[in-house]
Design a protein around this nucleic acid. Structure first.
Lengths: 203, 203
DNA sequence: TCAAAGTTTCACACATTTCTGAAAGTACGG
DNA sequence: CCGTACTTTCAGAAATGTGTGAAACTTTGA
């Protein structure tokens, strides 16, 4: 297991290693809310650390022009990759954001926007439909009238209370996640790193 | 916008409300690494707060027996739902874990296991292939021999260093996420809640 | 030991997502 | 302006992921 500080590595070997990295990243893509290809393109740009144009990307990854164009565009939208113009060249080059902390913040921001916020909106909406102010004192069941089976129409107070309690608890959770995430995203610097340090102090 | 503390709600109305909740949850499913149906089944059990058997689930959600069986089974595997036996009844009933904090920990544990850990393993493996101890002092480029274009075979030291730096930075990030998550998962109680409280003290 | 009740499996059908390639669009230099 | 170099779009093809339903399997009570 002793690692020899290998001085040289073959071009081919490096390419194989990069390939392995790219493949691993690609597999994670879908689980992260981006397509496999998008993840691979990003991995390629990230690990190579050299700006590439669409042709280079499509050649290296063996994907179509259309796919390369789409993927690069999405990556730019996510803020994970930036366009680079080279003097005297007409082609557009793309380079990956290389600061991993910045990357994590950008990913988080995007997922917050696409997933958490819409969910929160719906949860609030749903919560409102059974009235009662949001997220406040979770009134304990205080069972009063029970089945109330007058005309097979009304829902018992107990059932409604349970519903509301579940919803409130969920809302609180999602809001907590949201607030936490916003904090990371907002933080100037290495949001996660700060968090990690802080939390390591808790038992 | 003033909310009347509505005393009664029609059965039908409650069903519609539940439906909206279930639909919203279902939409989030894919983004969370579970299928839409699985998310819906969970939402149904969670919001209804009453144990149901497979037939009730398939009836309410209009899904096939096979699908219901699969989804319930996965939910049990994830630990989000538990089987309940009723005295004298032969059918199996299923009920959702109702503590949202426990839920969040279980989801996190599962995703850690399926996504983060394999990724970490591969990253380490990739890192090892260019040797040098892991995650330690990120040696600054210290550019020495540059192109070294002897036989068009070897990779320049500079290129290799860049590669390793990117990889190390990424490893550090993923490890941080991993450690943070492990902490939440491990925490007895409301991991996230504690985190939120703690972090609210940071500026 | 059997029949009834309940659950799981799995080959196939269906739906959704992703990718391709060619055509349309855009912008730049001359 | 026009031609060339490059990029984007998009309809259909391919791949992937999900859902169905019936048959196989398991369990239980008599």
């Amino acid at each position: 297991m002793a690692r020899t500080p290998q001085a040289t590595i073959d071009r081919d070997e490096l390419e194989v290693i990069r390939e392995q990295f790219i493949a691993a990243w690609g597999q994670m893509g879908p689980a992260w809310g981006v397509s496999r290809t998008m993840a691979e393109v990003f991995a390629l740009l990230f690990i190579t650390s050299v700006p590439m144009n669409a042709d280079e990307v499509m050649g290296r990854l063996r994907i179509s022009r259309g796919n390369a164009s789409m993927s690069l565009r999405s990556l730019v939208e996510w803020g994970l990759v930036t366009r680079v113009h080279r003097r005297g060249e007409r082609k557009e080059y793309f380079q990956a954001e290389s600061d991993v902390w910045a990357l994590s913040r950008k990913v988080m921001r995007e997922r917050l926007r696409r997933e958490i916020h819409p969910l929160l909106a719906t949860l609030h909406e749903v919560r409102d439909r059974t009235s009662r102010p949001i997220g406040l004192t979770r009134s304990k069941p205080e069972r009063t009238t029970e089945p109330a089976s007058s005309a097979a129409q009304h829902v018992s107070k107990a059932e409604l209370d349970t519903h509301n309690q579940q919803l409130d608890a969920l809302l609180e959770l999602v809001q907590t996640v949201d607030r936490l995430a916003e904090r990371f995203v907002g933080a100037e610097g290495k949001g996660l790193r700060v968090a990690a340090t802080l939390l390591s102090k808790m038992v």
